[in-house]
Computed example of a mutant assay.
Amino acid sequence: MPPTKQGSVLMGFNKNVAKFSTKTMAAAAKGGIVTFVHNNNYTKDQLGECFERNSEGMLKNMAIHELALLVTFYGVTTDTIAEVVADKEYSSCQTLVGPSSGKEFTDFDKLKFTIKTKEGKQVSVAADRCGGDDSVGIVTDETTGKETFRYSMPDEEDLANIPGLEKRCPGAMPYFYVQDPDYATLKERIAKNCFDGTPAEGVATIDVAVETLKVAEYLTPLLQKQLLG
């Protein structure tokens, strides 16, 4: 990945610099297939409101951070994708009524898929609106499918910081407390880049963001068709 030049438009995809993702990719450099898992802590009865408020859809909302990882580090673009396969046993696509508008919204509440690129790279993404409040990086052996590495966000260090953050900033969504250290890293790298041109390692640029949105728009109908027929 080329270094970020001073003056580039930089984006706030914090998972590009998060411990769980960077450590997972480092482990996979020795061999293995990566799966990025993203969980939110909605309850089933909140999904209608969730679908309505995030009507752009899961891939342009919740899982956009994982897609940014794929674009930044795996060379995934609409032109390089060779194959996309949904995990039908894991995934779920529903049409629910939004409580405010009374309109129907079709979206994924759970989704897992694997992308293979024309260059032979393979990476998977899993997202679950009702799966909890963490993100996980997993590496599996390419031959046996056995898990060889796992790292979660928050880790023990992050968990220890949460009570203090809750006291300082009460009422925030839980994921802001969980991801606070990664947002701090992101802001530090962007600030240094603006100040003296230090390369903002791993930070997504506006070009990455645009391509990420294109990938999300490309994948959404394709995966819905695989799941709904």
Rank of each mutant, 00 (worst) to 15 (best):
Val85His: 15
Leu59Phe: 01
Leu111Lys: 14
Thr43Trp: 10
Thr117Asp: 14
Asn54Thr: 04
Thr114Trp: 13
Ala63Thr: 03
Thr117Ser: 13
Thr72Tyr: 00
Ser55Trp: 06
Ser55Ile: 02
Lys44Trp: 06
Gly48Arg: 08
Gly75Leu: 08
Phe51Cys: 02
Gln46Gly: 04
Val84Asn: 10
Val71Phe: 02
Met62Asp: 03
Val85Lys: 14
Thr106Ile: 15
Val97Arg: 05
Phe113Ile: 15
Ala63Ile: 02
Met58Thr: 06
Val76Met: 06
Thr106Arg: 13
Met58Gln: 02
Tyr74His: 13
Gly98Gln: 10
Cys93Gly: 09
Leu47Gln: 03
Leu69Ile: 07
Thr106Cys: 14
Ser55Asn: 11
Asp87Cys: 08
Thr114Gln: 15
Pro99Arg: 15
Leu111His: 13
Val85Arg: 15
Leu96Gln: 11
Gln46Asp: 10
Met62Pro: 01
Ala68Glu: 03
Gly48Glu: 05
Asp107Glu: 06
Pro99Tyr: 13
Asp107Ala: 09
Ser55Asp: 06
Tyr90Ile: 08
Glu56Gln: 03
Gly98Asp: 10
Asp87Ala: 09
Ala86Val: 12
Gln94Trp: 12
Lys112Leu: 05
Phe51Met: 03
Ser101Val: 12
Cys50Tyr: 07
Asn54Lys: 01
Leu96Asn: 12
Leu47Met: 04
Glu104Arg: 12
Ser100Met: 05
Asp109Gln: 14
Arg53Ser: 10
Arg53Gln: 05
Glu104His: 13
Phe113Gly: 14
Asn54Asp: 02
Thr106Leu: 12
Val71Ser: 00
Asp107Thr: 10
Ser92Trp: 12
Met58Cys: 06
Lys112Ala: 08
Ser100Tyr: 11
Cys50Glu: 04
Gly75Ala: 09
Ser55Lys: 07
Lys44Phe: 09
Ser91Trp: 09
Gly57Met: 05
Ala86Met: 14
Ile64Gly: 00
Asn61Glu: 05
Thr117His: 15
Phe73Ile: 04
Glu56Val: 01
Asp107Tyr: 11
Glu83Gln: 09
Asp109Cys: 15
Phe108Asp: 11
Leu47Tyr: 03
Asn54Cys: 01
Thr95Ser: 06
Glu52Leu: 01
Gln94His: 11
Lys112Gly: 08
Met58His: 03
Asp45Ile: 13
Phe108Ser: 12
Lys60Glu: 03
Ala86Tyr: 09
Ser91His: 14
Lys110His: 13
Lys103Glu: 11
Gly48Pro: 04
Asn41Gln: 08
Asn61Tyr: 04
Thr72Pro: 00
Asp87Thr: 02
Thr117Glu: 14
